[in-house]
Simulated scan of single mutants.
Amino acid sequence: MAAVRVRQHVNPLSQRYQQPLALPDWSTVFADPTRPLWLDIGCGRGYFVEQMAQLERDAPTATRCGNFLGVEIREPLVEQANHRRDALHLTNLHYLFYNANVGLRALLDSLPLGTLQTVSIQFPDPWFKKRHQKRRVVQPELVADLAATLPPGGEVFLQSDIEAVAQEMYDRFLAHPAFVRQGPLWLPDNPLPVMTERERSTLARGAPVYRVLLKRQPD
C-alpha cells in the first residue's frame, strides 16, 4: 500500500469527531484478548506499537505486555497501519480510528477487565497557540479515565520534544492522586526497547526529549 498523505493537524474538538465510534469485539481483534494490553494514544503511523508487537512475538519478556493497541484520530493512517499489521500476521496488534478526547472512557470500559497495563502518549500535537491548547490530548478528564481503569502498578509513559507540553502532561497526571512519578524528571534515557520516529529524528539533530514515567498507585 502506498504511503498516505494526510493533514498533520486534526482538530479533535471539531463537530466531525464528536461522536464516539463503534468499538470492536476484542475477541475478534486479538488472538488472546486476555493478555496484558499496551495502549498508545495518538499513535500516528503506528510504527512504535508495530515494532513493540513484533518484539513481544520474538522476545516475550522484553515489552511487559502481550497485546498492543494504537489509537489515532487520522483515519487514513489507521487503515494503512492495519494493512501493515495484516501483512506481518501480527495477531497481538490493532489500530483504532478513534478520538481520545471524546470517547476514551467508552473505549476503556470496552476492554477485557483488568487487561490494560501500560499507556504511552508520545510527542502529541503541541497546539502552540493559547486558544488552541484546549485541543491537547492530555486533559484532566483523560487522566481521570485512565486512573479509573489502570490497575495498581500500571504505568503511563509520556514524552515530547517540547518542554512546555511535556510539563503540562506531567502536571496534569501528577495532580491526580492516583499517579506517582517513577525515576527523575526528566528521564535521561528512554526506558523502552523501541523509539518512535519522532524521538529518533529529535535526537539525531541534537535536541532534547522530555520523558517521564508514572505509576498507578493503590487507592
Rank of each mutant, 00 (worst) to 15 (best):
A166I: 13
V119P: 07
A175T: 12
Y170C: 10
K129P: 06
L107T: 12
D161L: 06
S120M: 00
G154S: 12
I121T: 05
Q122F: 00
F123I: 03
T115F: 07
Q117N: 04
A164N: 00
F179E: 08
L174T: 15
G183F: 05
G154D: 10
A148E: 10
G153K: 10
V137G: 01
E168M: 09
F128R: 12
T115R: 14
R172K: 15
Q117C: 00
K130V: 02
R172Y: 06
G153C: 08
L113P: 07
L113Y: 13
A166K: 12
F123D: 02
E168I: 00
P124D: 06
A147W: 07
A144G: 08
G114E: 13
T149H: 15
V137Q: 01
R172N: 10
L150C: 03
Y170S: 11
F128L: 06
T115C: 13
L158T: 05
A144C: 04
L150P: 01
G114H: 13
D171M: 08
A147K: 11
M169G: 10
K130F: 02
M169P: 07
V138G: 01
A175Y: 08
S110W: 15
Q139H: 09
F173R: 01
Q167W: 02
F179D: 08
Q117G: 01
P124T: 04
L158V: 06
A147C: 09
K134T: 13
D145S: 14
F123S: 02
E168L: 13
P177D: 14
P152R: 09
T115L: 03
K134Y: 11
P124A: 07
R136Y: 05
W127N: 00
G154H: 11
L108N: 08
G183I: 04
A166G: 14
T115A: 07
T115P: 05
T115H: 09
D109K: 15
A178H: 11
Q133S: 11
V156F: 02
K130A: 09
K130M: 00
V119Y: 12
A147R: 08
E168T: 12
P126N: 05
L174S: 14
L174I: 15
K129R: 15
F123P: 01
W127H: 00
G114L: 09
Q122R: 08
E168K: 07
H176V: 08
E141L: 13
A147N: 09
L107H: 13
Q133E: 11
P126S: 05
A175L: 12
L116Y: 07
V165R: 00
S160M: 06
P124E: 04
A178E: 03
L116C: 03
L150T: 03
Q167V: 10
F157I: 01
K130C: 00
G114M: 09
A178K: 06
T118M: 10
R181T: 03
R131N: 11
I121R: 01
L158I: 10
A178C: 11
D161P: 04
